[in-house]
Write a protein that binds this DNA or RNA. Structure first.
Lengths: 253, 253
DNA sequence: CGGCTGGTTGATTCAAGAATCAGCCAGCCA
DNA sequence: TGGCTGGCTGATTCTTGAATCAACCAGCCG
């Protein structure tokens, strides 16, 4: 009684429908959060019958898990390629930032789900969510260890910590966009953010203080400071969806 | 008809029971996550009848909200005090890192809940969870803006982004402990992490490259590199609790 | 001492929503 | 054309767990 769920057709060409549903899931998760939405929402978003979701995915958890695997595995692969490549640390760090921001550019919703729902919260139980997160950090920690042996790193810098800090910076940088603190439509801002993350990180970590070819990527020196058009949009310019799913009976109102 | 729930006695001396329950909630949330636990778990942990939880808290959400307010407001207050104080940026940044790590030292569980459940996830709907998070970033962004005007910051550094990066680093540094990547019982490691975060961040951001009085706090130059006793504990040394709450009927075999 | 007050109990109620399943229908082969 | 296959449907079932509430008890006051 095998699962005919995966790939009814040839290898990569999994059912069109399955992908539609997955896509819808990403969107809905991004909008309402994993716990804040019901399977019915996903089905509706996909324009598909409720039951069909269960035809393609064992349960809600597997849905999230799949979103995770799909998105994360791609990122890990790219990050690993960079981390294990040859070349100066400076380059690698910049390219890792590239990978992350490119992922965001291509599919912000997916990144949002990855960051908000999966990377942290003990939400979807199943897979090694945390483990996976930890994996990337380990991966890049090795990179730093090698860099350190090669004398590219300040000797007092702990590779593991450095790795954590790099991804912390990247993640929080992205979070700023995800959460709406910064305007994600502002491409220039994205570019600047990416550059600044790599730069800030490197200059603090590299052996030779503020040297090490600071501006290689962006041509403009320092065009605009706070790229958003208006001044700081009060408190939170984020979308602020419906975001109040639970709380059925307010006890004594 | 008013809520006799809060503070049946004098102001600060809220019912002993209430605090017991709150404490239990923090512990259980930290262990299983907000969505992964039932009120019954909290009650059991507190050694208290199920119904009593509802005597002191309107509902599950309010419980999380209270955990949030309790923990976060303290942190914000301290962070604000630092950010708005007089003195060189270097000092302030170091003190902010202090505040965060001190909070962790005092009550790691609470910090875990704050980081994993509240700061990010669209979990507990109610309060401005995200807003609060955003607030701190704004707060420190102002600090950076002023620093920049005072010429303490590289001119090409965006204050908002810098702020995000600082907290990203701090948060991810803490997450490393929260998640078990690093051993939280290793006090030296905590100290080093704190120092390294501030240092790395500053040197990349400050006007004068790698200058600016690097080692003010820690006396030892570079004692141990990877402070954990053993070598990298495979994949994930984290507690790995039960962490598989959902998934009732596995459909077909 | 007897009855009142308010913290405490936990079985019961109830709604949400995950998962199921009995079929429907479109395309295809004989 | 008739019947078969398998993707697809969505009302129905079933489980979970939040929230309620009627009763209980300990101390206290009159």
């Amino acid at each position: 009684m095998g699962q005919q769920k995966t790939a009814p057709e040839s290898g990569t060409r999994e059912s069109e429908r399955r992908r539609t549903i997955l896509r819808a899931a990403i969107d809905v998760f991004a909008r309402k959060g994993y716990h804040g939405c019901r399977i019915a929402d996903v089905a509706k978003e996909a324009g598909v019958a409720y039951g069909l979701v269960y035809h393609y995915f064992k349960n809600k958890d597997e849905l999230l898990e799949t979103v995770f695997e799909t998105g994360w595995s791609g990122f890990i692969a790219r990050a690993r390629a960079v981390a294990e490549s040859e070349g100066p640390l400076v380059e690698k760090v910049r390219r890792i930032a590239d990978v992350a921001f490119e992922a965001y550019r291509v599919d912000p919703r997916a990144v949002k789900v990855l960051i908000l729902e999966i990377a942290r919260s003990p939400a979807g139980a199943r897979i090694n969510r945390q483990t996976a997160f930890v994996d990337v950090i380990r991966l890049s920690a090795q990179m730093f260890t090698r860099a350190k042996e090669a004398g590219e790193l300040r000797p007092d810098v702990d590779p593991l910590l450095a790795s954590a800090l790099l991804f912390g910076s990247i993640e929080m940088g992205l979070t700023a966009f995800v959460v709406g603190l910064a305007d994600a439509r502002d491409t220039a801002m994205l570019e600047r953010a990416k550059a600044q993350i790599a730069d800030s990180f490197l200059h603090g970590v590299l052996l030779g203080g503020a040297s090490a070819s600071a501006e290689p990527v962006k041509p403009e020196p320092a065009k605009h400071e706070l790229p958003r058009g208006e001044d700081p949009p009060d408190v939170a310019p984020l979308k602020r969806e419906k975001a109040a799913p639970r709380a059925r009976a307010p006890k004594r109102g």
